[in-house]
Each structure stands twice: as structure tokens, then as C-alpha cells.
């Protein structure tokens, strides 16, 4: 590698990291600003939003790692274990905080009442679907975390197992994205 090439790839590395940090910060604003919304339930909304977005970001990064598992190339299992563990915790937080904000959603004068009065399909079809599928990522990632800790690094000798783990991560991501988008649609429709 020439000096010039080294400088260029170094620049690319700096830019990639800046892009990742900026994306994370800006995306966290999407929910973080909920803390300043003019409503009594902004704490619940903000906590749920932050944990949901944290989950989506971690889950999306993990889909990138999942392809290494599926392709069967070299994987740093130690770092992967920490990531899936953290992702599982975020999914748990997302589910718990979701329960918390769901109370207000169903409360008197809450979004549910308004949506049922004005656009009932969004409650009957979307919310009644979303409230369940958003519970899926946590157990799925719990399974992944368990499997990666249980088998340890030796799992790499079994391509069929690593491939399956990769697929579970992808499936979990899909439910995360579904939950994220439907949650935002409902929040746009009527905030808590």
C-alpha cells in the first residue's frame, strides 16, 4: 500500500465512523425530542421511542453480521455475543416501555379513542397487529444470545447452526422494522 492509498482509506474510515455516529444521533432525536412534547406522557413516549430506535439500529447492524454467519466466513464470536446480548436487552426495554406507553394509548381521551372515532382501521388492523409482532424480537434474540453463549466458539464447526442463527437475526430484524414503522405511523396519526 502506498502512502497515498493509506491516507485515502484512512479518510474513508473516518468518514464511515462519522456517518455512523451522525446517523445514530439524528435517529435518536426522532424519539428523544418526544421528551419535550406538550403531553403528560412524554416520559413514556420518549423512553419507548429511544429504546425502539436503539433496538432497530442494533438489530440492523446485526443483520450485517448475520451475513457473515450465513456465508460461513470468519466471525469474531466474542464481539458478536456482546452485540446480541445488548440487542436482546434493548428489545426487552422496547417491549417493557411499549407496555408502559400502551396504557396511555388505551386511556381515556387517548389515541385509541381518537383513532377508533376517526380512522378505525388503523386501530383494528394495524395496532392490534403491531402490539403482538413487536413482542417477537425479544424472545428471538434471547434464543440467539443463548445459542451463542451455550455453544461458544465451537459453533463455527457446524455451518448449519451458524446459518440458522443468521436467519433468526434477519427474522428478528424484520419484526423490529415492522414495529418501528407502524409505531411511527400511529404516532403521526395521534400522539399520546
Amino acid at each position: 500500500m502506498t502512502a497515498e492509498q493509506a491516507i485515502h482509506s484512512n479518510l474513508a474510515k473516518i468518514l464511515v465512523r462519522s456517518q455512523a455516529y451522525l446517523a445514530l444521533i439524528i435517529l435518536l432525536l426522532l424519539a428523544g425530542l418526544d421528551f419535550f412534547f406538550p403531553t403528560h406522557y412524554r416520559l413514556q413516549a420518549g423512553v419507548h421511542g429511544m429504546s425502539a430506535i436503539g433496538s432497530v439500529v442494533a438489530g440492523t447492524y446485526l443483520t450485517h453480521r448475520a451475513y457473515a454467519l450465513i456465508r460461513g466466513v470468519h466471525v469474531n464470536f466474542k464481539s458478536l455475543r456482546y452485540w446480541v446480548l445488548a440487542s436482546m436487552l434493548l428489545n426487552f426495554l422496547g417491549a417493557v416501555s411499549g407496555n408502559w406507553i400502551y396504557m396511555r394509548y388505551r386511556g381515556e381521551g387517548g389515541p385509541k379513542e381518537w383513532i377508533l372515532a376517526n380512522a378505525p382501521a388503523f386501530h383494528n388492523y394495524m395496532m392490534e397487529f403491531k402490539e403482538f409482532v413487536t413482542l417477537f424480537p425479544f424472545p428471538l434474540m434471547a434464543a440467539v444470545s443463548f445459542v451463542l453463549y451455550y455453544y461458544g466458539d465451537a459453533i463455527h464447526t457446524r455451518r448449519d447452526l451458524t446459518q440458522f442463527v443468521g436467519i433468526i437475526i434477519l427474522v428478528s430484524w424484520m419484526f423490529l422494522l415492522l414495529g418501528f414503522v407502524t409505531g411511527l405511523v400511529l404516532a403521526k396519526l395521534r400522539f399520546v
Binding site: 424472545p139 434464543a143 455453544y151 447452526l161
Partner: peptide, 27 residues
């Protein structure tokens, strides 16, 4: 880079797929 799928002879550890099925069937 690419690992052979089943390599039980040369590998000291024997891995069973049961736990992964249990961990994914239960959710």
C-alpha cells in the same frame, strides 16, 4: 475461512443441535 459442515472425527467437541431447536421452538 470456510468450515466443513460436519467434522465430528477431527473435532474434539461434539455439538448437538437439540438446544438450538429448543431455543427457537419455545418462542
Amino acid at each position: 475461512m470456510n468450515q466443513p459442515t460436519h467434522n465430528t472425527q477431527s473435532n474434539p467437541v461434539q455439538l448437538y443441535s437439540g438446544p438450538i431447536i429448543a431455543a427457537t421452538l419455545s418462542p
